[in-house]
Simulated assay, not measured.
Amino acid sequence: MEIVENAALVVVDVQKGFEEADFWGPRDNPAADDNIAALIDVWQATGRPVVFVRHDSTKAGSPLRAGYAGNELKDYVERRRGKGAGPELFLTKTVNSAFLGTPDLGAWLAEAGVGQIVVVGIQTNMCVETTARMGGNLGYDVVVPLDATHTFDLVGPFGWRRTARELAEASAVSLHGGGFARVVTTEEVVAAAR
């Protein structure tokens, strides 16, 4: 696998509100935060661009709503902001795709000549998957290290229940099998980025 010199790491919604287990329910992949931190460190050490994304929920009672402590980026992410040798962008959004945030992610990537993005964060089957799909649709070479994401159990129509792991696997199959992104591991990305 090749990670190009100016590949952008897009860190999606790694926010304190996702720690509220009573609201979200059971999650998968307890190693996600360590893997996200490792990827940010490699990106910053190699001078590659990093995009930090924050979801400002418009839903009353959401742990991610603006003005609530849960809206803040997790401490390990916040500590890394502004520490890299390469360009950095911070954007906010109210929908699933980071491409529909402020400032405009697509314009920033185009100005920097970026054609490859690595998407990590929370939730695998929501904002990570939507950002990856849209990136693929827009012509980016999208890479998703699945173990640098996590999600939560969910109930859908007809009383269908899926575990976080099942949802993450379904996202991986859809993204990879559908040609939107290459789904890989953090270890593979770190090795290629060094």
Rank of each mutant, 00 (worst) to 15 (best):
Q15S: 02
T130E: 13
R194Y: 13
H150V: 10
G139Y: 12
V50K: 04
D41L: 11
G179R: 08
V128F: 02
Y76C: 14
E19F: 06
T102I: 13
Y76G: 07
T94Q: 14
L89W: 01
A32V: 05
R79K: 15
Q44A: 10
A69P: 13
D56T: 04
A85K: 12
V4L: 12
V95N: 11
R162P: 01
V10R: 13
V173P: 12
S174V: 14
W160Q: 15
D28S: 09
L167E: 12
V53R: 06
M126G: 13
P30G: 00
A32M: 02
T185K: 06
A85G: 09
K83D: 11
H176L: 11
A98W: 01
G139K: 12
R27E: 10
P145N: 01
G86I: 11
A168I: 14
G139R: 10
P157N: 13
A110Q: 15
G177L: 13
L146W: 09
P63E: 00
V4T: 13
K16L: 10
P30M: 09
T92C: 03
A170E: 09
V118L: 06
E20L: 12
A37E: 15
V184L: 14
F18G: 03
D22K: 06
H55V: 07
V14K: 04
E88S: 02
T131I: 03
T185S: 10
G179A: 10
V118P: 02
L146G: 13
T124Y: 05
R48W: 02
E2V: 15
L100F: 15
V77F: 07
N35V: 04
W108L: 04
T149L: 03
V53E: 05
D28T: 08
D75A: 15
F18N: 00
P49Y: 08
T124A: 15
E78K: 09
E19T: 08
F52A: 00
L154K: 11
L100Y: 15
S57C: 01
F52E: 02
D75C: 09
A38Q: 09
D22P: 01
N125H: 08
